[in-house]
Write a protein that binds this DNA or RNA. Sequence first.
DNA 1: TACTTTCGTGTAATCGATTACATTTATGAA
DNA 2: TTCATAAATGTAATCGATTACACGAAAGTA
Lengths: 343, 343
Amino acid sequence: MSGKTTIYDIAKKLNITAATVSRALNNNSKISEATRKLVMETAAQMNYKQNKLALALKSGKSNNIGVIVPRLDSNFFATVIRGIEEELYPHGFHVIICQTRDDKNLEIENIDALLNAQVDGILMSISNVSIEQNESFKRILKKNVPLIFFDRKANINGVSTVTINDFHGAYEATKHLINQGCKRIAHLSNNRLIEIFRDRYLGYKQAILDSGLEFDESIVIETISKVEEGRKITKILLNMDNPPDAIFSSSDFTALGAIQEIKAQGLKIPQDICVAGFANEPFTKFMELSITSVDQSPLEMGKMTAKVFLEQVRNNDTIKIEKKVILKPKLLIRKSSSKNSNE
Amino acid sequence: MSGKTTIYDIAKKLNITAATVSRALNNNSKISEATRKLVMETAAQMNYKQNKLALALKSGKSNNIGVIVPRLDSNFFATVIRGIEEELYPHGFHVIICQTRDDKNLEIENIDALLNAQVDGILMSISNVSIEQNESFKRILKKNVPLIFFDRKANINGVSTVTINDFHGAYEATKHLINQGCKRIAHLSNNRLIEIFRDRYLGYKQAILDSGLEFDESIVIETISKVEEGRKITKILLNMDNPPDAIFSSSDFTALGAIQEIKAQGLKIPQDICVAGFANEPFTKFMELSITSVDQSPLEMGKMTAKVFLEQVRNNDTIKIEKKVILKPKLLIRKSSSKNSNE
DNA sequence: TACTTTCGTGTAATCGATTACATTTATGAA
DNA sequence: TTCATAAATGTAATCGATTACACGAAAGTA
């Protein structure tokens, strides 16, 4: 009784069949205007609400889409998801969130769980790349469930992706440091098996080579995205015989750590050393010594990912679309690397 | 064919009925060990995956729970949701995310959509309080769907809540400013129809009264949580005949705006004016002039909210639980208000 | 008048699982 | 041997909606 009206209840009340009720509610094929109106009114009066589960089972469409990310409490992913949700909501889709916590097994588990829940699509940013993952991805595709990667992608045939041009972003940032007069630019990298970090590294390298500067692999250091790590590595760099005069970091957090260490050693930013990060985390703008960074347009990335998905479902059976959207990153020059200007 | 094995497929292959297959897969009542094993093996071999939708329709439990927040891209809400997801995941629940963007109608729409999707519970932080909302809440309860508020709650009979003691947090922060020697403390407030902001205001007020200082309503100003607003209001405060010597803000963002304006006017923090915020946004710690703030333990809040929900579903039909969990806020004293110490 | 359309509605299958009840078969007791 | 009991499986309803097909009545045509 408690708030559960079905089409059968309406049918019984009006002495007609559930089929007729269903047709009336859906403005479907041929139904007499009289009964249509009657059913509509009775439904409203009885506070009828369509049971989406029943619909989902029948139609095979749950109207849920799964989003898998390494973690939620990062400004970047949270904002991407916001974009996805805002774009998908008007189309009646709900977003189911899963976190992998960078755990390979959890990633596989999540994919299976989402498939069992009959999601209509999976949008994800991968955590790791491995053979087992590829199995999971294939399972998704075999079920004909649209799969779209954003930001951290794997290269799989037939899968659409939405990314930013990490190479370009890193190239621009490094070029900017060179334009400031920096000659020996260190790079704080991250796991380069992940494409975004490899691309940032390559962009950095290319900018240095294009400018005729010496490329020195010994001042490229792979680490993880933590403030403390940035400090630790920077300490090592500053103690070198030939220390760098700039640091380009693939993460804002390590960039912040670098800044802390540089200051702790009594050096001046940007006069002695310039620093640039990547991701445009909110704090980079808020710092008194604001940090130069590369914006990844997370909101736009989320919306675009959702749009690519919508396009895919719209043509699901007829056309096979593989779309590679590459957003343009935006270099935000701030105090941490502005030797000349005032801002 | 594409990856869709049902229990009927298994049954046909083994020349038994779907009922037997179901029983075997569920280790249910009496089933011969032989068939159980046979079914299990065949299921694995045919790559059978249970269709959760069918199960959900039959059982009335979707194993999805809805989470409604004003927005996702705030560190606080993102972290709460992370906590909820991590706690619920091991129990087989999935989290469906909805944003209200502080829009009253969207909030109602979201509730209805979640109910139609047959979620097993709704965890939410309200955006506004109004009569229509109350109607929605009643609909949830009438359907016997567990409803739990976190952080921003409404006072509704029979609904469990998880909040922090905002009064206490504000009281402590204000007390701390007084202990630093501040005599005239302004308060940047926010919409006090929302309980958390009212409580912060009341805690602030009580601390001042308890200390025998003069309480002056004219330096309590209601605004919204934006950096620019904080700047604007602070400008007004500093131009008063009798400007404040401290600012306690109910938001870290307005606190940051205050700091920017104070510095712009050539005043020193904390020597001339002390500042404290609320929420412990990541940037408050990262600033060179780190900002004193009140931590709300968002991760714990999320986990606790999930736990209260789990407890509720576990006893759903037998007991009616109304639980009010109040977490203790933690004052983090940083440079923006430390006249004496070094940290 | 007789026959074909058209319109509106009813019948029943379907989506994939669970489960109360019925039925068959095996087992043990007397 | 015979019957009661237990064990294993089958039958069919159910969750709530959609929809192909069937059917009767009304309307149109010759």
